[in-house]
Design a protein around this nucleic acid. Structure first.
Lengths: 112, 112
DNA sequence: ACAACCTACAACCCTTCGGTTGTATGTTGG
DNA sequence: CCAACATACAACCGAAGGGTTGTAGGTTGT
């Protein structure tokens, strides 16, 4: 079902709920960067940054490619747009003009 | 500072990172609803739903008004738009056309 | 008046999160 | 070759999350 879609949304918003991760995302949207280069910019261990990058990657907000000994991360702007789209759908619910409103609202409950 | 702005973003994304809360938000965007009416739609205790509503309220995504014995929640579409705006700024970083890019990227670190 | 209803909140439980240190492995440049 | 560097990952820790039950107080309708 679209159970998966909710999972994706969980991952997206959770990934974005940490300011360090948002900052990392900004940086790798502006330009590819290695994990250790990123780590140098924050007052925390390399491992901590590694974990943040992993969370962003699992959420699909960034991608990584191997380049020799370093792992280069790049922001995925399409994923960011998907999150925006999700919010736009919320807005559409408000405006009362979404066709899928039943599915959206019936997703995890019954009317009364 | 805009430390506060990061705090707001933390609260927004954290509030949105739970599917029950997103569902509640959809419902109260579609129309005002009491907490107990919401609670009837989910397979969890009233207290759990109360907490979810409280999280959404603290994040500024919904507002509440008292009507006799019930507390009516309503979604704040302006707040949803603010979250979208934040994502649009991320997109703008990617496109390299945001003027405030320095502030955005210098927010919690130094260049190297 | 009073039973049914709605909300509020404390206390507790288990899991997840964000961080740490420590160890291991692969890569590079001189 | 080998030292410096980049990544990976396990193990641990305290704090925060999401859920529960239990108790209590305001509202409402008959």
């Amino acid at each position: 079902m679209h159970e998966t879609e909710e999972d994706r949304a969980d991952a997206w918003f959770h990934a974005l709920s940490d300011r360090t991760r948002r900052d990392i995302l900004r940086r790798v949207l502006a330009g590819e960067s290695s994990v250790s280069a990123l780590a140098r910019k924050y007052d925390m261990s390399l491992t901590a940054v590694q974990k943040h990058v992993a969370v962003l990657e699992r959420a699909g907000l960034i991608t990584r490619r191997r380049a020799g000994r370093e792992s280069l991360a790049r922001g995925d702007v399409e994923a960011v747009r998907s999150v925006q789209t999700l919010l736009t759908e919320l807005e559409a619910v408000w405006r009362g003009r979404i066709a899928r409103i039943d599915q959206l609202l019936e997703s995890s409950a019954q009317e009364d």
